[in-house]
Amino acid sequence: VKAPSTGSARATFAALGTTAVVVVTEPRRLDRAEQILREVLDAIDLACSRFRSDSEISGLHAHAGRTAPASALLTDALAVALRAAAVTDGLVDPTVGAAVRAWGYDRDFASVVPDVALVERPGPAPGWWRVTVDERRREILLPRGVHLDLGATAKAYAADLAAGRAARETGCGVLVSLGGDVAVAGRGPADGWRVAVGDDHATAGDQPADLVTVQSGGLATSSTTRRTWRRGGRPVHHIVDPRTGDQAPPVWRTVSVAAGSCVDANTASTAAIVLGAAAPDWLAVRRLPARLVSTDGGVTTVAGWPADTRPGGHVQGVAA
């Protein structure tokens, strides 16, 4: 990624199995902002990682069927995930954990086994409404047999949390990106934060891509071409339709959404992948600006997302 045109400064490091980026408008505040981001990521990983046997969520699974005390962070992260499920009518559902594991995403992505037979065809998610969170008392009741996967929202929640905390503490504008899920807070650059939107967050800055500016809130991209592997000889990606337990339909390669927060952007982009062909209308009625790239590369923009500026890019717009 080329150096930004403003007087900002950035730090990049590996975290949560992806790339973490923090950008500040005051270069001398970079170290503090990076420290805050690292603290938030360490805490989120320890609370929410289903790949760590010592994580709080692994302990919760071990105590399924009984009310268990939980940290403020896990309580909040689970409440955020349940809210995402409620506002999408279950298109994004944290109880999809067993299905995601059955498809083979049962360890840190770098260690996922490339291809073996699919042992058992996953079924529908048990349902987010079966999980009880008491936010005031910080207690969680996870029914037996329900496995949580907070992957869809916990990372975005961490981006919102870190950007907000760093902006408050440093007093400058802060952008946090976790694997391409972007949150901004504080007073940003005068012309907005410039974000390159592409199929792959690692190369979007180098490849021909949409270049947009955002002023506040969040921007997230969900993809069926990143984090892919094979099961039973069939290509598999990490987004499961909670209603069936099957892979989300191969309609969109990537969906990028802008919203009031990174969590809301990520919730909508994940829901759009699951919805498939119905996604543009679903996004438009919610006034969520979005850029959807079909599996054949055609670009659809929705609800005020700028028309594709790539040379040769062809656009099919959907009115808000």
């Binding site: 990624v1 506002v87 939107v197 592409g198 967050h201 990143r226 009031g260 009625v285």
Partner: peptide, 30 residues
């Protein structure tokens, strides 16, 4: 349609086109 505090919050402003080169961050598949 869920909106407001109980729904998915739209952005205060839609993304605007940016021209030229250089970006603060990238948003791609993850």
């Amino acid at each position: 349609v869920p909106q407001g505090s109980s729904g998915i919050q739209p952005p205060a402003q839609a993304p605007a086109p940016a021209f030229g080169s250089g970006s603060h961050a990238s948003s791609g598949g993850s």
